[in-house]
């Protein structure tokens, strides 16, 4: 099968250096380095041939259990209404104090999506106008969607039988 080059790649390369693109399940994914995301976002939105006017989704993946480096991946799903086409951007981020430039100025919808990633993954979005927790309460500790955040360690809020219940041997007939 002939591999067709995605139209965004020749336009992105002078700006962000060599980009890696993959095709799978009819979807195109382009990897962009973290320090170039603002430039790449502006180009993808404003170029009349690309025209990714809407940011459909922004999220992150913690690749801790996949043994892939670097640990975090910010995932952008862009949508071009005119061309009826989607594009996925991957931005890898290291484990140590992960931070990336905010794209709120490019796609205002990113506001809540970036706050959600900040809240649940602990990734900072530099330049975000209002980077606070959005889903969890302000005094929450930790970031639950990280893979090393355990499920079920929270103490039960109340119990009146603590220390009184002893396991007993039961004789079955």
């Amino acid at each position: 099968m002939a591999k067709s080059v995605h139209p965004a790649i020749p336009k992105l390369e002078p700006l962000v250096g060599p980009v890696a693109a993959t095709q799978a399940h009819g979807e195109t994914t382009i990897a962009v380095p973290a320090d170039r995301i603002r430039n790449a976002a502006l180009l993808l939105r404003d170029d009349s041939e690309l025209d990714y006017s809407q940011l459909a989704d922004l999220t992150a993946v913690d690749r801790l259990d996949l043994d892939e480096q670097p640990r975090f991946l910010i995932v952008y799903h862009l949508l071009s209404h005119r061309r009826r086409e989607r594009l996925r951007l991957h931005v890898p981020l290291p484990d140590d104090d992960p931070a990336i430039a905010s794209v709120v100025a490019v796609w205002p919808t990113a506001d809540w999506f970036e706050r959600e990633v900040y809240d649940l993954f602990g990734i900072r979005f530099v330049g975000h106008p209002n980077l606070r927790r959005i889903i969890l309460s302000d005094d929450w500790e930790g970031h639950p969607l990280r893979k090393d955040y355990p499920i079920g360690i929270e103490d039960v809020a109340f119990t009146h039988t603590v220390g009184r219940i002893q396991p007993q041997q039961v004789d079955l007939p």
Partner: peptide
């Protein structure tokens, strides 16, 4: 692999981004 599938829900674009290992 990873996929993103979107449907038109009564409220708009409902997308599922699924990563499989």
């Amino acid at each position: 692999g990873e996929v993103y599938a979107a449907v038109e829900s009564p409220r708009g674009e409902l997308g599922f981004y699924v990563v499989s290992d």
